[in-house]
Structure formats: structure tokens, C-alpha cells
């Protein structure tokens, strides 16, 4: 797959009183054209810094970054990309349509029908004449998305696009992003809304303290779901006979709880319970969630760092 973003050994260092801090620490990343890519990490992990480097707003101290096949900083890239920052501000005295006219003028676009079409696309057709100060948070986010689509970009950088929105606005923005995939656009999303990322992204990377802690296809990263089997009326001795690998067996309030990987069939355990005259209350398949992966990855990396000192 042709790459929309290629990052090799990217470094960004800030000076502080305690010495130099690598906010972005030798990261490697590749995002294919047409992908929706999730860029995740705790606050201060280096997500926004990486995006700003890719946009040419700040400069890297080392490594190489290319966007749409060109070196970052090349003005030709700016005609094909778009950026929606976290909690953006738009000139409040302007109306929705005036905001779009302003951003369109930066591309020398004067197509009024296109701007009205964009307002329709983000469900603001009837609110284009209202000033931004009259817009709700969700409407401001939608006008933000509309301004980012003015140049029909090949690649969009969205920083927390659904952050702080109510559930309806949340779904609307999510659907708009999914539509972008259908149009073949590449979307690079930095977000804390892991449920959204899980639903819309093809691949993700988790960045922690400036380093990539994990990256890959979501379906690969989220492999390894589990079954939770709950049974009653089972003698405690049965627990010892359950010998399946990577399986946790416990008793709680007289109930047997078996937590086992979904790579092993639960039939043998269920048959054992029934043979011991027990009753199976439930068998719940638990898919691994992105949230679990995120917390697990970040914790593990932090523990490794504590144990070995940062390399």
C-alpha cells in the first residue's frame, strides 16, 4: 500500500530546567493511503507534537518525516491536507458561511455552491447565517470539519475530533469520519475516545512518553478474547481438575468462575461442570477491547521503564 505518512526515527526535544526532554523519541510510523489511523496515548505522550511536525508548524530535531510522498514543510503538501485541532476557536463575529469563505480564500477557492454543499454535509445548512458565538460546541466542531474539507484533502489530521461532545454530536462526527473513508481519504486521528477509535480505525499506534509502545491492525492487536464461565453447585475439588492453559479458576459466593482464553474450547470445562452435577449459569465471551489494550500497554511500558530505568 502506498504510504500517506512515513516517519523514520523522528525526534523532537525540548529544553527544560531538568535537562533535555525527548517529547518525540525516535518514532517510526507508516500510514497507508485510504487508511483511518488512530494515534493514541496518554496526555503529554507526544501525539500533538508529532502532528504539528507533520503539518510543518514545528520542526523536528532529528529523523525523517514525509507526507504524501514529500518532505514535511513543502508547501505543495498544504494544498492536499487538512487539520482540525483540539478545541479549535473560530472568529466569533463571523457566521458559519463567512468562516468557510475565509478558509476557502486561503486556497483561492470562490465556489459558493461548494461552500453551501459543505454546510449541508455537516448538517449546518440552516445555520450558516448564524455567528460562531451562537454555535454549540458540536456545531463548532462540525464547522471545523467543514473548513477542513474545503480543499477536498487527501489526508486529514483530526486532533480529538469527538472530545467533549454530547452523544448525538459524537455520532454525527463519527459518521462524517466514516464517510471520509468511503471517499478514499486518509484520516489520521489522535483521540482519547477509544470506543470511537475502535469502531472507525483500521490501524492504531499507541505512543507513550514519546515512544511507540505498540502499533498494528486493530484486529491483530485485539486478538485474545476470553470466556467467563460461571457455575453453581460445583464441588470445590473440581477447580483442581481444570487444567486448561492460561485459565484462572476461582470461587466467589459459592460460585465457580472460570476465566479462559477464547482460543480454547469451553466445552470440556462445561462438560466437567455438568458431570459434577453442577449448573452452568452463564458463558460470556469477552472480546478484548482497545481500552484494555491501551491501559495494558501503557502500564507495561511504564513498569518496564521503572524496573530498568529509561534507555
Amino acid at each position: 500500500m502506498e504510504a500517506a505518512i512515513e516517519i523514520k526515527q523522528l525526534v523532537k526535544t525540548y529544553k527544560s530546567k531538568i535537562g533535555d526532554i525527548n517529547v518525540v523519541d525516535h518514532i517510526d510510523l507508516e500510514v497507508g493511503k485510504g487508511e483511518i489511523f488512530g494515534f493514541l496515548g496518554p496526555n503529554g505522550a507526544g501525539k500533538t507534537t508529532t502532528i504539528k511536525i507533520l503539518l510543518g508548524i514545528i520542526y523536528a530535531d532529528g529523523g525523517d518525516a514525509r507526507v504524501l510522498g514529500r518532505e514535511v514543510g513543502d508547501m505543495a503538501i498544504h494544498k492536499k491536507i487538512a487539520y482540525l485541532p483540539e478545541k479549535p476557536y473560530y472568529y466569533e463575529h463571523m457566521t458559519g458561511i463567512e468562516i468557510l469563505r475565509f478558509y476557502a480564500s486561503l486556497f483561492k477557492i470562490k465556489d459558493e455552491a461548494k461552500l453551501k454543499g459543505l454546510l449541508e454535509r455537516v448538517n449546518l445548512a440552516n445555520d450558516g447565517h448564524k455567528t460562531i458565538s451562537q454555535y454549540s460546541k458540536g456545531m463548532q466542531q462540525r464547522i471545523g470539519l467543514a473548513q477542513s474539507l474545503i480543499n477536498d484533502p487527501e489526508l486529514l489530521f483530526l486532533d480529538e475530533p469527538t472530545g467533549g461532545l454530547d452523544p448525538i454530536a459524537h455520532i454525527e462526527i463519527r459518521d462524517l469520519i466514516l464517510n471520509m473513508r468511503e471517499e478514499g481519504k486518509t484520516v489520521f486521528i489522535s483521540s482519547h475516545e477509544l470506543s470511537d477509535v475502535e469502531r472507525i480505525c483500521d490501524r492504531v499506534a499507541i505512543i507513550n512518553k514519546g515512544r511507540i509502545a505498540s502499533q498494528g491492525r486493530l484486529e491483530d492487536l485485539l486478538k485474545g478474547g476470553r470466556y467467563e464461565i460461571t457455575a453453581s453447585g460445583v464441588p470445590e475439588g473440581l477447580a483442581k481438575s481444570i487444567q486448561e492453559p492460561d485459565t484462572l479458576v476461582s470461587f466467589k459466593d459459592g460460585r465457580l468462575i472460570v476465566d479462559m482464553p477464547d482460543t480454547t474450547s469451553p466445552n470440556a470445562v462445561i462438560e466437567g461442570i455438568l458431570a459434577a452435577k453442577g449448573s452452568v449459569i452463564s458463558v460470556i465471551p469477552r472480546r478484548k477491547r482497545l481500552e484494555d489494550l491501551f491501559v495494558e500497554t501503557v502500564r507495561q511500558k511504564n513498569e518496564e521503564e521503572k524496573a530498568g530505568g529509561r534507555k
Partner: peptide, 14 residues
Amino acid sequence: ERRTIYTILCKPVQ
């Protein structure tokens, strides 16, 4: 501070 600059400088604006 208001991040308006990012939405402008990421467009073809020197």
C-alpha cells in the same frame, strides 16, 4: 493560544 493559527498555517499560507 486559541489555535486559530494552526488551521491557517496548515493551509497554503506562508
